[in-house]
Write a protein that binds this DNA or RNA. Structure first.
Length: 223
DNA sequence: TTCCAGCAAA
DNA sequence: TTTGCAGGAA
């Protein structure tokens, strides 16, 4: 019975938490294009696009993008103006340059293959902890913790922690998120967390706790 | 800690 | 019209 208990705070039955979450996640899985592939290149591209950008906004751009650049060598040969035109609707225009630099780096230092090691990924321009972890989890199924605005919100609510903008850099949050990752099916687990954040555990709108699969583990709303 | 930058939902 | 978004870099 894997109990999680840090600093004498709230403790949960981690095994039950994961079971409930993943059963729910299987049912409500959002089948985005970048989720039905294990190609690390495609997953990396998606993660870069999802950076501070809604999935619904990414969908049409991603589709068009991979039609033009189905693999990394076609992207490496891309014309700059065509690339920025495709990426334009996403905003954050510095993404174009970063993506070019990232691509060139993968070609130059890793022979055009997206590296599998965490440190190698994090050495790429535009790639830090979140994207490196996401690629490793979704492409190779490594049990990586994903620390982003969504997982911070869910885990923060479960453990009754105050959630601030800076919480995603808080080691305590990172520890809690890491200690709950499922080690048998990490990909399924992390997708379920992101889907739960989108469909139930809303940020601004009041979360729909009555429909939440992990309600019994969660301190949110408990008196 | 602050900026990023277009878009869609509210 | 305002608000907030699958983070990273400065």
């Amino acid at each position: 019975m894997a109990k999680i208990n840090l600093d004498g705070g709230h403790s949960i039955d981690g095994k039950l938490f994961r079971k409930n979450l993943m059963e729910w996640g299987q049912r409500y899985f959002r089948p985005f294009q970048w989720r039905v592939t294990e190609d690390p290149y495609l997953i990396l591209i998606a993660e870069v696009m999802l950076h501070r950008t809604r999935a619904s906004q990414v969908e049409p751009v991603y589709k068009k993008f991979i039609e033009h650049y189905p693999e990394i060598l076609t992207l490496a040969r891309a014309k700059k103006d065509e690339l920025s035109e495709i990426l334009y609707p996403l905003g954050l225009r510095w993404r174009t340059n970063l993506l070019s630099e990232m691509t060139a780096d993968i070609v130059a230092r890793f022979g055009g293959k997206v590296p599998e090691e965490k440190d190698d990924l994090m050495g790429l321009p535009g790639v830090s902890d979140y994207i490196a972890s996401a690629v490793r989890c979704f492409a190779w199924n490594y049990p990586e913790p994903l620390v982003d605005t969504n997982t911070v919100r869910i885990i923060g609510r479960v453990f009754g922690l105050e959630i601030k903008d800076s919480s995603r850099r808080n080691p305590r949050f990172r520890e809690l998120i890491a200690s709950n990752v499922d080690h048998y099916e990490p990909r399924k687990y992390n997708y379920a967390l992101l889907d739960l954040a989108d469909r139930v555990c809303f940020k601004v709108k009041e979360p729909e706790c009555n429909y939440c699969p992990i309600q019994e583990s969660c301190l949110y709303g408990v008196q």
